[in-house]
Simulated scan of single mutants.
Amino acid sequence: MNSRKWRLFAIALALLLVVPAAPAEAASDDRVSSGYQQSGIDVSANYVRDPQSGEFVLAPPGHVSDDPNQYKADLQCQVDDNSLAKRCLPGQMQCPPREAGEKAGTPVIWKVAPKSVSNPVWTDWSTSGNGPSCLYDQKPEDLLPRIAARIESDFRNLPIKPADLTAQPSPHTLKGAETNIFADALEQQFEVTLLGQRVHIVATPVEYTYAYGDGNSLGPTPSAGGPLREAEWGQKTRTSHVYQQTGDFQISVTTTFRGTYSVNGGPNLPIPGTGQFASPPQTVSVWRSITRNYADNCIVNPQGEGCPGVPAK
């Protein structure tokens, strides 16, 4: 065999002996099919916050929103659009049915990214738990608008504690003097279940409307007022009132609360509208004061006006 034919034979033999090496990660590939069709949950769907209602909804094609962010929910063990991490599955969050006959939930992680960036890098949405949460509806893109549609009325029916109302001085005050009236309301949190989902609601006091009982009122105002030291009673405050007549008056305050809600640990969303919660009224007795000068005291003149046992004139 001449040298040229030998070289061709050697090349052909080398090609037959070469076997493509499997990628290094193939030997340890721990991904499995995500089974989206089996679960019926489109966890890769993008969500937006509606500018009118504030609801967290699936973004329709061509939708334009003022929110600079976009949102989506990924399966807890998702590694790409078609695979789950097999090693993650045994330790993922368990989402058992909430009630007998219902389907189990799906563990998801909420993601956020700037809407202005094409093909963005999604990051975990920061929540109080900073971890996965459960979705119990087969179609979360349908679930969230349904919750948003009823969250306002449910918010107004919550057992929100109204402000505590205080008057200084009380229960008696003086005609023509400043009576300090103030409210004390606290932020309150509630865990409720809507449509089978865990919804966390935060109610925050934002405004106060005072009724002084004599036809005068103040508000709505963001000022709740505050207490004065006894030595400062009679000073004017942002919420104080001067009564021009004597008598008994019913004072009251109505506190306006705003709220936010989060579904299954998702982003905090504003609740449309507000809720007004009235405090129980209180009675303030307005007295007049009379000043008299005396030349002596009750020791010198035990029968003097205002001394013990002396009838009032």
Rank of each mutant, 00 (worst) to 15 (best):
L75C: 09
P68C: 14
P60T: 13
E55L: 09
P60D: 03
L75I: 05
P68G: 05
V79K: 15
P60Y: 15
V64W: 05
S44D: 15
P61I: 08
S65V: 06
V57S: 09
Y47I: 05
Q70H: 00
A73V: 00
A45E: 03
A73F: 02
A59E: 14
Q70P: 13
F56I: 10
D67P: 08
D74P: 00
N46C: 04
A73D: 02
D50V: 13
D74M: 05
A59H: 09
Q70W: 00
V79T: 14
V57E: 00
G54S: 00
D50T: 07
V57N: 00
V79S: 11
V43Y: 08
V79Q: 08
Q52V: 15
D66F: 01
S65T: 13
S65Q: 03
P51R: 06
S65I: 01
Q78N: 04
P61N: 15
Q70L: 06
D74G: 10
D50Q: 06
C77V: 11
A73N: 03
G54H: 03
N69F: 08
Q78Y: 11
P51D: 04
A73Q: 01
G62D: 10
D50S: 10
V57F: 03
D80Y: 13
V64S: 11
E55H: 12
L58G: 12
K72W: 08
D74C: 04
E55Q: 14
A45D: 09
V43P: 12
V57T: 09
P68K: 08
A45S: 14
V57Y: 07
Q52D: 13
K72N: 14
D67I: 13
L58N: 08
S44N: 12
K72F: 03
C77T: 06
A73K: 05
D74L: 04
V64D: 14
Q52E: 15
D50A: 10
C77M: 06
P51K: 02
S44Q: 07
A45R: 09
N69M: 13
V48I: 14
Y71S: 01
D50C: 03
V79M: 06
F56N: 08
D66S: 15
G62M: 08
E55C: 08
L75G: 02
A59P: 01
R49L: 03
L75T: 04
G54Q: 00
V64N: 01
N69C: 02
L58K: 08
P51S: 09
S53N: 14
G62V: 09
R49N: 13
G62K: 10
D74E: 12
N46A: 13
Q70F: 04
V43D: 14
